[in-house]
Computed example of a mutant assay.
Amino acid sequence: MTLLDHALIEEASKKSGLIWVRGPEGPPRALWHVWHDGAVCIVGGGPLEQPLDGLGLRDGGTATVSVRSKDKGGRLVVWPARVTELAPHGERWETVVGELRGKRLNAPDFPTLSERWARECRVLRLEPAGVPVEKPGAMPDDSQAAAPLPTPATTRRRIPVGLPRLLFRRRRQHGA
């Protein structure tokens, strides 16, 4: 990896509030993170934190990280990562958790956040492990848009037959 590639990955990751992580399993997921000591660091997996299940992120495994541009919001760089799970209360874990605590918004238990993370969550380090797959000047030609995941929640349904009559009658009755 060139120095320019490393600088692009680092700066884009530092400035972006979210990254998209694709593990060996499942669709990519947006995750909040911090850039620390040459890698993206994330926390999750507990009931009060971002979900990591379904991604298949394992210690020693790999992932693909997509980072968006802060000003335009479009995909800026996509890079392969090596996953390292940090052991709770180790020296590196304590340093990373100190950084993550500063970025964690609205934690219900901020004073005891580190203890809860040690008990219930996983702290992962995603370190660049090769040249970027996509970067400025080397982006795919197609949109890369993914189809939405199936869900029972919807806002698009047929309007009930009597609804327009009901709405217009109400408007006339109120003098509108």
Rank of each mutant, 00 (worst) to 15 (best):
P27S: 11
E120T: 08
A147R: 07
L4M: 07
L52A: 07
L18W: 11
A145N: 10
V83M: 14
G137L: 08
P136A: 02
P140A: 13
L167M: 15
G26E: 05
A81Q: 00
R156H: 12
W79H: 05
H33W: 06
G137H: 01
F110L: 10
F168D: 12
S13H: 03
R156G: 08
P152V: 05
K70E: 15
V133I: 07
Q144W: 10
H6C: 13
D37A: 10
G38P: 08
L55D: 00
L86P: 04
Q144T: 09
L166I: 02
H36N: 12
H33I: 10
V40A: 07
G44Q: 03
R82K: 13
D71F: 02
D141F: 01
L167I: 15
L52D: 00
A138L: 12
P132G: 12
R116I: 01
F110V: 11
S114L: 09
P160K: 00
L76M: 14
I159G: 01
L163W: 03
G162F: 03
P160N: 04
L105I: 15
A12I: 06
T151A: 13
R68I: 10
V97R: 00
R170Y: 09
T62A: 13
L113T: 05
I159M: 10
F110C: 00
T112S: 10
A87M: 09
D142W: 14
T64M: 15
D142Y: 11
D37C: 08
S66F: 02
G38A: 03
A39F: 02
V123P: 03
G61F: 04
E120Q: 07
A129Q: 02
K14P: 03
P128Y: 04
G45D: 07
D71A: 10
R157S: 13
A12H: 03
A153V: 15
R169V: 05
A12N: 07
P140T: 10
G73H: 05
L3R: 07
E91T: 06
V131D: 09
P24L: 08
D109I: 10
S114V: 10
M1T: 08
H89R: 14
E134Y: 01
L149K: 11
P148H: 08
P51T: 07
R75S: 06
K72F: 14
R82C: 07
L55A: 05
P24C: 07
L86C: 03
G98H: 02
A138F: 00
P148I: 09
G26C: 11
W35N: 09
A153D: 11
W117C: 07
W35L: 03
H174K: 14
W117G: 06
A129G: 13
G17N: 14
P24A: 14
R119K: 06
T154Y: 04
D5E: 15
E49Q: 13
L3A: 14
A30W: 01
T64Y: 10
G175L: 09
V40L: 11
P28G: 07
V43R: 03
R158S: 14
G38K: 03
A30Y: 01
P132W: 03
V78L: 01
E99D: 15
E94F: 00
G98W: 04
G162W: 04
R75E: 04
I42L: 15
S16I: 02
S143I: 04
M139V: 14
T154K: 11
R58C: 13
D109L: 10
L166Y: 10
L86T: 00
R119D: 06
G60N: 11
P51L: 05
H36R: 09
